[in-house]
Amino acid sequence: KTVKFDGLQFDFDNPEKALKFALEVAKQKGAEVHIHGDEIKIE
């Protein structure tokens, strides 16, 4: 899975870790997590 935000991109082999990371970043930024297939966007 790939996590994208602020023009940055982070690749994870483990989908659970990717989602956990995305949710943590979103919480800190006050943003929402959007999942599109293998891509997780924080907006």
Score class of each variant (00 low, 15 high):
residue 15 P to C: 15
residue 3 V to P: 01
residue 25 V to C: 15
residue 37 G to Q: 08
residue 13 D to W: 06
residue 34 H to S: 09
residue 27 K to Y: 09
residue 16 E to R: 03
residue 40 I to V: 04
residue 39 E to M: 11
residue 32 E to L: 13
residue 24 E to V: 00
residue 35 I to W: 11
residue 40 I to H: 03
residue 2 T to E: 04
residue 19 L to I: 06
residue 29 K to A: 10
residue 3 V to G: 03
residue 3 V to Y: 00
residue 19 L to S: 01
residue 26 A to Y: 00
residue 36 H to V: 12
residue 9 Q to A: 09
residue 18 A to T: 03
residue 1 K to A: 13
residue 41 K to E: 10
residue 34 H to Q: 07
residue 10 F to N: 01
residue 5 F to K: 03
residue 22 A to V: 01
residue 3 V to K: 04
residue 16 E to Y: 05
residue 17 K to L: 14
residue 31 A to E: 05
residue 11 D to W: 15
residue 29 K to W: 13
residue 18 A to I: 01
residue 33 V to N: 02
residue 37 G to W: 10
residue 18 A to W: 09
residue 20 K to G: 04
residue 31 A to F: 12
residue 13 D to I: 07
residue 38 D to N: 13
residue 40 I to R: 02
residue 14 N to C: 15
residue 3 V to F: 00
residue 5 F to V: 10
residue 19 L to V: 01
residue 32 E to G: 10
residue 30 G to M: 07
residue 3 V to S: 03
residue 24 E to C: 15
residue 41 K to Q: 11
residue 7 G to Q: 04
residue 37 G to M: 08
residue 38 D to F: 09
residue 20 K to F: 05
residue 32 E to N: 11
residue 22 A to I: 04
residue 38 D to S: 11
residue 17 K to C: 15
residue 9 Q to G: 05
residue 16 E to C: 15
residue 1 K to I: 14
residue 27 K to I: 11
residue 39 E to W: 09
residue 33 V to T: 00
residue 17 K to T: 13
residue 42 I to F: 06
residue 8 L to P: 01
residue 31 A to L: 13
residue 36 H to R: 09
residue 7 G to H: 05
residue 12 F to E: 01
residue 30 G to Q: 08
residue 12 F to N: 01
residue 26 A to D: 02
residue 6 D to H: 07
residue 11 D to G: 06
residue 39 E to N: 06
residue 9 Q to S: 12
residue 25 V to G: 00
residue 4 K to M: 12
residue 6 D to N: 10
residue 21 F to D: 15
residue 30 G to A: 06
residue 22 A to D: 10
residue 5 F to S: 01
residue 8 L to K: 08
residue 26 A to F: 00
residue 25 V to A: 05
residue 14 N to P: 00
residue 15 P to E: 12
residue 42 I to K: 03
residue 19 L to R: 03
residue 1 K to W: 15
residue 34 H to R: 10
residue 32 E to Q: 13
residue 7 G to A: 04
residue 10 F to M: 05
residue 19 L to Q: 01
residue 10 F to C: 14
residue 15 P to D: 10
residue 17 K to Y: 11
residue 35 I to V: 09
residue 40 I to G: 01
residue 11 D to H: 14
residue 34 H to P: 01
residue 5 F to R: 01
residue 6 D to T: 00
residue 36 H to Q: 11
residue 3 V to I: 05
residue 26 A to N: 00
residue 41 K to D: 06
